[in-house]
Design a protein around this nucleic acid. Structure first.
Lengths: 230, 230
DNA sequence: GCAAAAGTGTTCTAGTTACACCCATGC
DNA sequence: GCATGGGTGTAACTAGAACACTTTTGC
């Protein structure tokens, strides 16, 4: 089957930069190993073609599901990359998305094209296919910028988390040390965390309180003009 | 002539939200009147198809030049709109850009398709074609957000401007009153304005000093970790 | 001399930063 | 009992907000 148009058209794809945290709160990104040329065997961002009957956001979500089994997550459009030579085969414009997930809740695995999916520490990425290194850089900068002004970090943590986990997350992503007392004071003063009255268990030191992010309260406060900021 | 592909492809366009300030520092947006169906005679954002040999940013720049005569300006990617039904004829994905120009420096006029180009006050826009109202809204929000944290407002003003003009610009775009003394103190303390030693002329009141934005100094300060903020 | 916008400092308040010790648990 | 991370308050400093009058020009 073939499709004809009066004017030439670029192919349109979506690519996803999926961030997660490992057990020691190090920032990871999910990559898949390409099974086909060009860049065969090279690691790349998960992605694929936009189909005629789906919106671009739906395409990004579908690709993530197909390639990794990931289902519900934070997904936001990042930027559209449209340099003429970014794909050696053909003119391809890609709309990049970035996603945040709690690694513990998913078992990532390749599902299509016999491709391998795996997490990589953002400090030690392999050489990537196409312009994916550039897309990753833009995504990392966006994440750093957004984390300070919107409560998106909770997407990376389990539903119940300790204040130290939260602080480590900020330190990892923002790449700087934060003062423990100031951090706690600031975050607790916002009244956006629910004390679950539960404790961490199985640790060989004093167990920490577990908190939950109070999303409905955040939405209410935002309506009233509140601005989240770390 | 016709072009065939193995899989169906969406058409890809760019659309531009061009902002300017009128003589009394009111925010304006440039629209063109459509000469063709659908939405014939309706006002729309300037834009058009991305050609195979040009990057998407180059396409946005070219469309602006073709339709309005505008040449050098601040242009930045906004967002990509890809809902399936956003164009009634066909699947069309559009990459939206926003641009800032100093109206006084350009005479805007229609150049192609016998279409009319004109400036509209953002408070009184006509009904727009396609999803252009939504694109405009996103652009306005982006402009408001960006203006506070990056010195992009100067793009809207003539090269030499008074502090009152600058303050009015911020008040107009951010839609709130600012305190004159605090505003001046803050902006002058940044040392980003060059006193041209010239004065406003032809006004029937005390003439104001004219300033210029010192871009090279801004770039140097930014390297050193300085963050612009109003 | 009057209308219109330019220009100029200080006080008060709120938020940010810096900083050190005791506590609870597992082994 | 020791190693490990959990948990807590205050003082100094800095940035932001509120606020009113004099100056210069054209007509």
């Amino acid at each position: 089957m073939s499709y004809s148009y009066e004017h030439p058209r670029p192919a349109v794809t979506v690519d996803c930069v999926v961030f997660g945290l490992d057990r020691v709160q190090q920032l990871q990104v999910m990559l898949i190993q390409r099974g086909l040329t060009p860049f065969k065997d090279r690691w790349a961002l998960p992605g694929g073609f936009v189909r005629p009957e789906e919106s671009i956001e739906a395409a990004a979500m579908r690709e993530l599901q197909e390639e990794t089994g990931i289902e519900r997550l934070f997904l936001e459009q990042l930027y559209t990359f449209g340099e003429v030579e970014r794909d050696p085969r053909d003119r391809v414009i890609t709309i990049a998305y970035y996603a945040l997930i709690n690694i513990a809740e998913y078992t990532v695995q390749a599902r299509t094209d016999a491709r391998d999916a795996a997490w990589f520490d953002v400090q030690q990425l392999p050489k990537l296919a196409f312009d994916h290194q550039q897309i990753f850089q833009v995504a990392k900068q966006r994440l750093q910028g957004k984390l300070r002004y919107q409560p998106i970090g909770f997407e990376l943590l389990p539903c119940k988390f300790t204040l130290t986990q939260l602080q480590r997350l900020y330190e990892t992503v923002l790449e700087k040390k934060l003062d423990k007392r100031n951090f706690r004071q600031k975050i607790l003063k916002m009244k956006l965390l629910i004390d679950t009255e539960q404790m961490q268990s199985g640790v060989s030191h004093r167990p920490a309180k577990l908190y939950q992010f109070d999303e409905s309260r955040y939405l209410a406060l935002k309506e009233a003009g509140f601005n989240f900021e770390i």
